[in-house]
Write a protein that binds this DNA or RNA. Structure first.
Lengths: 231, 231
DNA sequence: ATAATAGTGTCTGTGAGACAGTATTCT
DNA sequence: AGAATACTGTCTCACAGACACTATTAT
């Protein structure tokens, strides 16, 4: 604890400084489930426990660049949806010292996921948010918070599209909502709502799977969605 | 810029560390206007420019404690509404070096404001958000962002009550909304809405000012407001 | 024909927003 | 009586949510 008292409002540089990290809650929808990327720790503290990926912010980069860099290192994916969540700085959140972390949410679409293969030695894996190990540090708290935010944002921003390929059917879109909200939605009301929002565009293509009627394919067009106040 | 590359996922302590500050956008409603507290800088950089109050986070305290401490130092007020806004870490945002800041929004009610008198030598003053000097550092950006958030939150959380004394009339409450949103509201619709929300309680008291009908006094009771997902 | 999924329309209730006149107090 | 502010009710429209049947394809 620093005891020194400075004149009010005056900046100086001889205060003790925290280590600054970014941590990422990386979501995807896969196998009909909402999943997050976790990494198994191979050193103390919390050795052998799972944690969300993260790393130090370097001087000269923005926080967002640091988050993107970590994201790329862990997943091999670039240019995906990334949003600052919250900054956690509780003393004692890292037993080794003063570490403040800026947490981000990242969303990877299922087709980008195919690029993800180059995982090296480290133990990295996707877990269902509904069935996952207990996390290291304060990562449970970060995850809880991120999930609340993700669900809330579903209502008033087009984040769900970040989890789908460019082309998708309305049923696929509905599944994304259902999986994240963890409840079933009425098909007629859902379609009515989505079509009224004017953010998706019909294509002439149809998707045909099995022995049933083919589904029309749509594209995300992002026109008048109630705009997030963050933008 | 640190060049060293570490094994993925491994924490260490020999990275360069940023200075960490908290900055506060402190709002109040006063003289029929939305005001923020600004401090005139008395040293370089940005000497003689106005800035939002802030200061270093100390090891051993939470970010919120740091924000509360700064708040108390600047205003003499404790235990008021405080909310983390966003963390700003653009390289170059402070010309003297690497300084990351966690920005907070604070709301002071007009009656708490009366306690505020002990401002020492420093040049501290309330400015209308609609008529204020250009701010130092990236504080314009922080202010813009905070105002968007404050306005958005008015719609779905009872933050407005934080700016009023415990007892208030419906007209006073409406004025808070009008001043923050910078537009007039329909009196009948406003009252209908507020009363339907079940978050204010009628008292038996009346407020009588001038030569006109007295106004009923209400109290904030916080029952079923659409709950913020942050809570 | 059957199985499987895609696709569609109506009704009801609720809330938002537009809109104007009466009530009470003081001087 | 007049000035000033408090207080109130109705109508319309849009949206949310409940709800069930038809359409198309492959086998």
């Amino acid at each position: 604890m620093v005891e020194k008292v400075l004149p009010k409002g005056e900046y100086t540089y001889d205060y003790e400084r925290p280590a600054l990290t970014v941590d990422l809650v990386i979501y995807t929808v896969k196998d009909n489930d909402l999943k997050i990327l976790l990494i198994k720790r191979n050193s103390e503290p919390f050795k052998d426990m799972w944690a969300i990926p993260g790393g130090f912010v370097q001087n000269g980069e923005t926080l967002e660049q640091a988050a993107n860099r970590e994201l790329f290192e862990e997943t091999g994916v670039r240019d995906i949806y990334l949003e600052q969540l919250y900054t956690f700085g509780e003393p004692g959140r890292d037993p080794r010292g003063w570490v403040v972390t800026v947490a981000y949410i990242a969303l990877i679409s299922s087709d980008n996921l195919k690029l993800f293969a180059s995982t090296d030695a480290q133990d990295v894996s996707w877990f269902s948010v509904y069935q996952k190990p207990t996390l290291a540090f304060d990562h449970e708290k970060i995850l809880d918070y991120s999930l609340k935010r993700l669900r809330a944002k579903l209502d008033y921003t087009p984040v769900a599209f970040q989890l789908l390929p460019k082309k998708f059917t309305l049923t696929e879109l509905q599944r994304i909502y259902e999986i994240i909200l963890n409840k079933t939605l009425d098909k007629r009301n859902f379609r009515k709502k989505m079509l009224s929002l004017d953010i998706i565009k019909q294509t002439e293509e149809m998707k045909r799977d099995g022995n049933h009627r083919p589904a029309r394919i749509y594209t995300f067009s992002e026109r008048k969605f109630p705009v997030n106040y963050l933008s």
